[in-house]
Every structure is written in C-alpha cells, then in structure tokens.
Computed example of a mutant assay.
Amino acid sequence: MPLVKRSLSLHGHRTSLALEPEFWDVVDTHVKSEKRSLASLIAEIDDSRDPDDPLSSAVRVWALKQLRSA
C-alpha cells in the first residue's frame, strides 16, 4: 500500500509526514477521541523522540504502542 502524505505545521515550520494508511487510521482515531489537533499530537511525538530517529518512525512506534495499550 502506498504512503499517504500529509502536511502540517510543526513548531512553526511547515513539514510533511508520509505514513501507511493503517498508521494514519490509528493517529486519526486518537486525535478524534482526544479532541485535539493532528499538529499537537505530532509535536508531542516529535518532542519525545530521539533526534536521530526519523519522525515517521517515531509516529509508527507511537501508533503500535497505542494499539498494544488498548
């Protein structure tokens, strides 16, 4: 399945993030249930990741952790 790319502002800078649709489903479900913005969730993940790790990988790991804790 191809990656789905979304654009957002992260810490005042425009960026894009490409993930598989299955990971976006987890992210979207969480954003909707928490009534928060996509940018705020991605910023939180970005702030907590190792700077050497790609943001897309950090979001995937976050999504897997969400599924495991559910």
Rank of each mutant, 00 (worst) to 15 (best):
H11P: 00
L8G: 06
K35T: 11
A70S: 15
D50K: 08
S48V: 08
S33M: 14
E22M: 02
D50I: 02
S9R: 15
D52P: 00
H30E: 13
E34C: 14
A39D: 09
S56F: 10
E34Y: 08
V26F: 06
E44N: 13
S9E: 14
L55G: 01
P51T: 10
F23S: 03
V61G: 00
W24R: 06
A18P: 01
T29F: 07
S40F: 05
G12Y: 08
V31F: 04
P21S: 09
L17D: 05
E20R: 09
L55E: 03
E44Q: 14
V4W: 00
M1T: 10
S40M: 10
P2T: 08
R68Y: 13
S37P: 01
A58I: 06
A18D: 01
K32L: 14
H11D: 13
P51L: 10
S16E: 12
V31P: 00
L55R: 03
Q66A: 11
L67R: 14
V61W: 03
F23W: 04
K65A: 15
K65C: 13
S37K: 12
L64T: 08
H11T: 03
V59D: 03
V4L: 13
S33N: 15
V26N: 05
D25I: 02
A58H: 02
S7V: 00
S57K: 14
L41K: 08
A18Q: 02
D47M: 12
S16N: 09
V59C: 04
P21L: 05
S69E: 15
V31H: 01
D25F: 06
E34R: 15
S40T: 12
K32F: 06
P51I: 10
D52A: 14
S9P: 00
S7R: 14
V4M: 09
E22D: 11
R60L: 04
A39G: 04
I42N: 05
E44K: 11
D47A: 15
L17P: 04
S7L: 01
S57Q: 13
A18G: 08
W62L: 08
P54V: 09
K5P: 00
H13R: 15
S16T: 09
D28G: 03
P2D: 10
Q66R: 15
W62T: 06
L3Y: 08
A39V: 08
A63M: 05
H13A: 14
R49I: 07
I45M: 05
D25Q: 12
T15D: 08
D52S: 13
G12E: 06
S48F: 07
K32G: 01
K35E: 15
L8A: 05
L38A: 04
P51N: 10
S37E: 12
D52C: 07
V26A: 03
S7K: 12
L38T: 08
S37M: 11
L10K: 01
I45S: 06
H13I: 11
L64K: 12
R49G: 03
L64N: 09
F23R: 02
K35V: 02
